[in-house]
Simulated scan of single mutants.
Amino acid sequence: MTQYLARTALSHRICTGLSRRRLGALIGELAGPWMASEAGRLHKRRGHERLRAAGAGPNHELVFTDRMIATLVILRFQLPHAALALFYDVDRSTITRAVHEIRPLLAARGFVVPGQPDLRLRTLADVFAYAAAKGVELRIDGTEVQVRRPRANKPGRRTFISGKRRQNTKKATVITDGKGRTLWTGAFRPGRMHDQTALKTEGIWDLFEQFPGVRAKVDAGYLGLARDFPNQVEAPPKKPNKDATPEELAVWERARHQQSSERICVEHGNAEHKQWRPLQRWIGRREYYDEIHSAIAGLVSDRAAER
């Protein structure tokens, strides 16, 4: 298979998860940063300015467009790098090098502001500033993905064991708006760490104090956050005692169902992320997971922002 045929077939939306229109826009967006990082890498390797004119020397086996397509296909289906190398008729290491060049660029893009595609949110502070300016009520939830178990006799081996799933996982926090559009994904941590503890380390307590007009809905995992900010954070109502009357139970059930219905959009946002195979179960190195999750969430936010 020639590289042209591989590019034609693999650039289909089924393979990349993006329409060709959005794929073209993404290539145009990241071509400049990739060329700048490549020039910096070569300058660092040489230790001086280039001696030959621009364009001289050997060409890349894969042009930038093919590198982008190969990276997206791997993010979409978690295919072995050797499989993509066969399609492009190159060595496996060429695909691996391309993925390690493109993936950080995708992860650093941030998340689209709905209705303003030129603006992107990259930090939790950006999300709170946007929510305060636009009056957006946030939805906050945690998600976890099974990862490879650390090798035996390694320190901290139990760090990744999730108390909920009883598996080795990594967790992330996802924030969406009321329509389930991803605004931020981060606070990556081992599966043993509680969702609320992760947000504490991200400084969310300080942000709620700085932006008193921001409102959020959360699940029962963030009861402490709702307790400290009762006028800003809404958690599920507390279940009545065992001796509660049927009327009290009925009132609690209706309130719980109403809060769940208003918060369910963040679960739908998580489900969009997990349509990409690496976020169903990550079988690669754990140290790459944070970057991969950020890259996929940013791509999903591009499509969700158009709703």
Rank of each mutant, 00 (worst) to 15 (best):
D228G: 00
D228N: 07
P230W: 03
P230A: 08
N231L: 08
Q232M: 07
Q232L: 07
V233E: 02
E234C: 08
A235D: 01
A235Y: 06
P236F: 03
P236I: 05
P237T: 12
K238W: 00
K238H: 05
K238Y: 07
K239C: 04
P240W: 00
P240T: 02
P240G: 02
P240V: 00
N241Q: 06
N241E: 11
K242A: 14
D243T: 15
A244I: 08
A244P: 02
A244E: 02
T245E: 02
P246S: 01
P246H: 04
E247W: 03
E247C: 00
E247V: 01
E248C: 00
E248T: 00
E248A: 10
L249S: 00
A250I: 00
A250L: 03
A250Q: 08
W252E: 05
W252L: 06
W252S: 05
E253S: 11
R256E: 14
R256N: 15
H257T: 13
Q258Y: 11
Q258C: 10
Q258D: 09
S261M: 06
E262S: 05
E262P: 00
E262D: 04
R263D: 05
R263A: 09
I264H: 11
I264Y: 11
I264G: 07
C265P: 02
C265K: 10
V266T: 15
V266S: 12
V266C: 08
E267L: 10
E267C: 13
E267Q: 14
G269E: 10
G269H: 10
E272C: 11
K274T: 07
Q275D: 12
Q275V: 10
W276T: 09
W276H: 12
R277F: 04
P278H: 13
P278E: 10
L279F: 13
L279P: 09
